[in-house]
Write a protein that binds this DNA or RNA. Sequence first.
DNA 1: AAGAATCCCAACCGCAAGTTG
DNA 2: GCAACTTGCGGTTGGGATTCT
Length: 326
Amino acid sequence: MGRSPCCDENGLKKGPWTTEEDQKLMEYIEKHGHGSWRALPKLAGLNRCGKSCRLRWTNYLRPDIKRGKFTHEEEQTILQLHSVLGNKWSAIAKHLPGRTDNEIKNFWNTHLKKKLIQMGFDPMTHRPRTDFFAALPQLIALANLRQLVEQRPWDDHAARLQAEAVQAAKLRYLQSLLQSAASIANSPSSSSINAVPSDLEQIGLLSPPQMSSWSPLPSSSLLESISGQDIVAGQVPDIQMPSSFFDQPISNDANQSSGYTAKGIGEGENGTPKTMLLSENSLPPLTDFPISNLGDDCSTSSCDGSNTQFTNWIELFDEQFLSIFP
DNA sequence: AAGAATCCCAACCGCAAGTTG
DNA sequence: GCAACTTGCGGTTGGGATTCT
């Protein structure tokens, strides 16, 4: 397996393509097909290397390429597929007609990855970041200190931190439940990944129709459409956040910070760190995130504020999660 | 208004797998 | 089996566009 010759031989042109070059390339491929990419530039009268021509065609000139911003559905698909496939951009692109791997990669790197990081999730594993948890008590304690000093409700930042912590904890618990589901699904007596432990059903996590909009597991149709080699049998993909969740603005409106309380910051009687207790009414109002205000932080054209299904689901999650989570 | 900072994406680079003779 | 060649892929970057100060 030899290495391909470098493109910059013979002073071939590099950099942005001109409309004239595009025209030449398109006309040639429409007439003759691309054939050998290496031979194409000479035949088409282009002072480019074949690699550059191939890239230009596949990423920009191909007639079936979809232009414009990613839709909400596409964003969800990318998130789901990335949780399963990782940075297999070409594999992900196969499930998004009209989108190139390069485009998806760029979208991930410029938007989705940042959102995951901002929400305290590892973009590679889709799990809550441990360093985030480690630092959280100190951050909350600092915020509380400030509250005491200033005698006023939590500011936006502190409220946001707590809201994120609660959501991350919930998701971590959900993930452990899903892993249980996977082990059951993987057992000889179970034939479907959809087999769920009773506690999942008990807390209503999988009750329709709330889960129709987003599921922590890739949809069954999606899984079916992914080639078998992409997924280790029985392995549950890492949980990922719904894109609607990521759409929540990082800086919440002031009216969301009221009424949040943290209890028991500090040390317990035996000197061990005391667990931060969050009263039920201290939970952030997940359903109240001003989705209609997402515009500034919204990178896709789909942020139209119409996504209510997930918020319904998370609302259910709030109540029933707390009833079983000490 | 202007300079700085940041965002965004087209294009490049290099590696590895696949193909051919 | 081997080397040359082709193609595909993922990571990175340059610079224009946009936003911020």
